[in-house]
Amino acid sequence: MTSEQKLPATIQRALRVAIVPDSFKGSARASEVATAMEYGFSKGAASLKREVEITAVPFADGGEGTLEALIDTWGTQAITLETTDALGRPVTSRLGLSADQKIAVVEAAEAAGLPQVSDVARKPLEATTSGLGPLVAHALDLGVQQIILCLGGSATTDGGTGLLNALGAKFLDDQGNQLPAGGGALGKLASIDVSELDPRAKKVRWQIACDVTNPLLGDKGAAAIFGPQKGATKHDVQILDQGLERLANVLEADTGRSLREQPGMGAAGGLALCLASYFFVELTPGWELVAQVLDARRIMQSADLVLTGEGRLDSQSLDGKVVCGVLQAKGELSDVIVVAGSVDLSDEELEAAGILAAFSIAPGPASLAELSADTLGLVQRTAFGVARTYLR
Score class of each variant (00 low, 15 high):
residue 367 S to T: 15
residue 77 Q to M: 11
residue 269 G to C: 12
residue 290 V to C: 10
residue 127 A to L: 02
residue 117 V to I: 14
residue 178 Q to L: 12
residue 363 P to G: 14
residue 217 L to M: 02
residue 256 G to R: 07
residue 283 L to T: 02
residue 233 T to G: 01
residue 188 K to H: 14
residue 110 E to P: 13
residue 254 D to C: 01
residue 264 G to D: 07
residue 98 S to K: 08
residue 95 L to R: 05
residue 288 E to T: 09
residue 79 I to S: 04
residue 327 L to I: 11
residue 171 F to Q: 10
residue 222 A to C: 09
residue 31 S to E: 10
residue 391 L to V: 12
residue 141 D to L: 07
residue 12 Q to M: 09
residue 41 F to C: 12
residue 373 A to D: 13
residue 369 A to Q: 15
residue 198 D to Y: 12
residue 12 Q to Y: 02
residue 101 Q to T: 10
residue 42 S to I: 01
residue 133 G to V: 02
residue 154 S to T: 15
residue 60 A to S: 11
residue 45 A to K: 10
residue 237 V to K: 04
residue 225 I to L: 14
residue 386 V to W: 00
residue 174 D to P: 03
residue 251 L to Y: 00
residue 144 V to S: 11
residue 285 P to G: 05
residue 91 V to H: 15
residue 261 E to I: 01
residue 380 Q to K: 14
residue 38 E to H: 07
residue 330 K to V: 09
residue 350 L to V: 07
residue 87 L to W: 07
residue 365 P to L: 14
residue 252 E to Y: 01
residue 370 E to F: 02
residue 79 I to C: 05
residue 164 L to C: 11
residue 17 V to C: 09
residue 198 D to K: 08
residue 65 G to S: 08
residue 290 V to E: 08
residue 354 G to V: 11
residue 289 L to Q: 09
residue 174 D to Q: 12
residue 212 V to Q: 02
residue 322 V to E: 06
residue 75 G to T: 09
residue 270 G to F: 03
residue 265 M to Y: 01
residue 149 L to T: 13
residue 325 G to L: 11
residue 354 G to L: 12
residue 312 R to T: 11
residue 138 H to T: 12
residue 231 G to Y: 13
residue 199 P to W: 03
residue 71 I to D: 00
residue 333 L to K: 09
residue 148 I to F: 06
residue 8 P to W: 11
residue 21 P to C: 03
